[in-house]
Simulated assay, not measured.
Amino acid sequence: MLYTPLSETDIFPVSEQELNKRHCVSHKGKQLFVEELEDGQYQLLQLISTDPNDFMNGDYTPGTILK
């Protein structure tokens, strides 16, 4: 586990092709950083929120597949 203010991509660089698949979207009123999968679905990478209660919601667990 790394305790750092750096983003995951700063520590583990990704290719340009992978970066084109990553987007910041609004889903159910929440800002999410997602990666587009091959089948058109999105995988949640990061919840962007200042409300601590949002992070307790299991719907926003990193790795969750959004339709």
Rank of each mutant, 00 (worst) to 15 (best):
M1D: 12
M1V: 14
L2T: 12
L2K: 09
Y3V: 15
T4W: 15
P5T: 11
P5G: 08
S7Q: 14
E8P: 09
I11Q: 13
I11M: 12
F12P: 08
E16D: 06
E18W: 10
L19E: 15
L19Q: 14
K21W: 12
K21S: 01
R22Y: 07
R22P: 09
C24P: 03
C24K: 12
C24T: 13
V25T: 02
V25C: 02
H27T: 13
H27K: 11
H27F: 14
K30L: 02
F33R: 03
E35H: 08
E36G: 03
L37K: 03
E38R: 10
E38N: 05
D39L: 01
D39V: 08
G40W: 00
Y42L: 07
Q43P: 02
Q43T: 05
Q43A: 02
S49H: 02
P52Q: 10
D54G: 07
D54W: 02
F55H: 04
N57Q: 05
N57C: 03
N57D: 11
G58D: 13
T61M: 09
T61P: 03
P62F: 05
P62G: 00
P62N: 03
P62A: 01
T64N: 09
L66A: 02
L66I: 01
L66T: 00
L66M: 00
K67W: 07
K67R: 05
